[in-house]
């Protein structure tokens, strides 16, 4: 399945998803995305930077010291929910998502983890 199809399947399964993007965190680039029409390149660049910030100090250090390296981050604000997942096998690979508060978060996280694993594995 093409990466755009994989990301599109997430949108289809969870319509509360505004955007889902596949990023290379090491190069700070969004490589593919699917979502609503009003998503701009500037927004995607900002989203990628936010993913990097989520996995940075000082909370990164706290998590590493306490429980090991974090691969998942959730950022909740008044404007919605941002979910960032990093691949465990390819740490630079990440999915960056923005959703409405009404999203079924447990199901959504399971879905995007499965999607990320497939993309990183080249499936």
């Amino acid at each position: 399945m093409a990466i755009s199809d994989s990301l599109g399947a997430v949108i289809k399964a969870f319509p509360q998803t505004r955007v889902v993007a596949f990023a290379d965190l090491s190069s700070r680039m969004i490589l593919a995305s699917q979502g609503r029409d009003d998503v701009t390149q500037e927004f995607l660049d900002q989203l990628c930077q936010q993913a990097r910030t989520s996995f940075d100090d000082p909370l990164f250090s706290l998590s590493v010291e306490a429980f090991g390296e974090p691969h998942s981050a959730l950022v909740i604000g008044p404007d919605g929910v941002r979910v960032f997942l990093r691949s465990e096998n390819e740490p630079a690979d990440a999915l960056c998502c923005v959703c409405d508060h009404s999203i079924d978060l447990p199901g959504f996280v399971a879905k995007i983890r499965e999607t990320l694993d497939k993309i990183s594995a080249g499936a």
Binding site: F55, P70, H71, S72, A73, L74, I76, P106
Partner: peptide, 10 residues
């Protein structure tokens, strides 16, 4: 704002 950071969250 709220941030949650974990190995897998679930």
């Amino acid at each position: 704002m709220c941030i949650v950071l974990g190995a897998s969250l679930d």
